[in-house]
Design a protein around this nucleic acid. Structure first.
Lengths: 288, 288
DNA sequence: CGCGATATGTGGAAATTCGCGCAGATGATG
DNA sequence: CATCATCTGCGCGAATTTCCACATATCGCG
């Protein structure tokens, strides 16, 4: 039995079709078919039904996929260990962060890092679902919650403070009037800034809900209403004014890394830079 | 990273030399060297120091070997799962049993099994150290202790009863005289038959100690003294006579299998046969 | 001290594997 | 109903991998 065939198997089981699996593996679809076929022969099991629109796992294939996932997890541990020992600051480091933070705030602050290390490549992943560091979907992550996985190392590197913001034109034109509020949708009910907004809004209309902070920011800037926005994103925007602090909406910022990677020079360099750029967030009061 | 390279890595780490690893892998030593070299390059670590007498793991290689063992364990689980689903009674089944039981008692009772299933190959492993079923060193095992590993399924299929035996000529010639005793050495102190013998011997000399039951049996047959022997081995021997029962020395016989393999037709057939041939051991009193 | 056994390392031939191109089929789309 | 995109399947040439034979080094032993 060829262990590497399992790599193709898990990719195929996850992708659903030969072609998609081949793309993700950077291989040819005929190769995927051959390797998985050989695995079937080696194990003496039919793992997939060959359908015109894709290969669908048989019952045994699906059951095997669970066990193959254990193999993959162990492989990831091996890779993490190796990465954790590398002494040179080059290669690739993936950073996971909430999408708006990644795109609007983190992205423009990474240039000094890549400039300092010519061999370094960054992969900035903005994802609503926290990337799994154990499954190696990212190397380090910025999160707004304390990591729940006990196998990970988290360090609180600051606080994300919020204020109630509105478009300058709108606020100056309407002064003290009751303006519409803009907030998050149901999937994000329960986060502090949303709770604060609901309490603050009382009977006022919440004119727009979204799951994306960038959308929220854009809507506020367009004069659609008021929203609780992080100071780090809104304070620098000349088109926005802060009406009041939203102290209760404050969220902690955690820097999370897998222990195996903590000592990697490459990952260490990225973490140091993240700690450096978040320095302003560790001051008692942040904002304009 | 090629997952199959890890297979070569664990083999090399375990074998200690390219040549030995190549033998176990049924590959060429140059292949082992190249594959492990590629793994080193992929991980960016030097895993072995190339010595004239063998490749010795570096500190990182040794540490990685532990994690690679996890991969191997997961691979074994995959293989077990596949074997557990096979519907045909062919292929290979390995049986682990105490050496004397394997060679003298079990071996002559396996013929009907292979005769009934022409595609079946048996691998009978007589080993003092219980083969690890989790690590797939054997498929089923006969053991004289309840299995301690909670992940395994054990079934008590009988009892191994002992008697105090001596060579017929010796016993008839000396009648009631105090004969020498023969027993196990220190490594096996604590097993019931040895405790019984010690209690029974009192101040009599134990003229020979060994760790091997076959040796003990041969020595008894040669008229060297008396020993506690299993009835199943000694009772059929015309040259031996049983002087007394050793009820306290009775040991349970457990049939152990990994749960993944329990439903395999191949393994099931072997287990059924083992249960059949041990039927006499489930009678209240066993012997001549 | 020399000899045999066993080890690693090197270069070239053989075998295997891989990827490419194309055909055939299916489902979505206008 | 025609079209387009996407998927699987097959054959062939190329590239990679593997094995084989030989050279060289080291350890144990008489």
């Amino acid at each position: 039995m060829n262990w590497d065939d399992l790599r193709f198997f898990v990719a195929l089981a996850r992708a659903g079709s030969l072609s998609e699996a081949a793309r993700r593996l950077a291989a040819d679809h005929t190769t995927v078919a051959r390797r998985v076929g050989e695995l079937e022969q080696a194990l003496g099991l039919k793992l997939f039904d060959r359908m015109p629109r894709g290969w669908v796992p048989t019952a045994e294939g699906a059951a095997l996929a669970e066990r193959a996932a254990d193999v993959e997890a162990a492989i990831h541990a091996v890779a993490r260990f190796a990465d954790g020992r590398s002494e040179t600051i080059d290669g690739r480091v993936s950073i996971s962060a909430p999408p708006a933070l990644a795109s609007l705030w983190l992205a423009p602050r990474l240039a000094p890092l890549t400039r300092a290390h010519p061999g370094l490549t960054l992969d900035l992943i903005g994802d609503v679902a926290d990337a799994s560091l154990v499954r190696r979907e990212a190397d380090v992550a910025l999160r707004l919650r304390q990591p729940s996985d006990s196998g990970l190392i988290g360090r609180r590197i600051g606080d994300l403070r919020y204020g109630l913001y509105g478009a300058r034109g709108l606020v100056e034109a309407t002064a003290g009037e009751d303006l519409d509020f803009l907030g998050y949708d149901e999937r994000l009910d329960g986060v502090p800034q949303q709770l604060w907004l609901r309490a603050r809004a009382r009977d006022r209309r919440i004119a727009l809900v979204t799951n994306d902070l960038v959308t929220l920011l854009t809507a506020v800037r367009a004069g659609m209403g008021l929203a609780a926005l992080p100071h780090v994103l809104a304070a620098a925007d000349d088109g926005l004014v802060c009406l009041e602090e939203a102290e209760a909406a404050t969220r902690p910022i955690w820097l999370v890394v897998h222990p195996d990677l903590r000592r990697s020079a490459r990952v260490r360099a990225v973490m140091d830079h993240l700690i450096e750029v978040t320095a302003p967030l560790r001051r008692p009061v942040v904002g304009a």
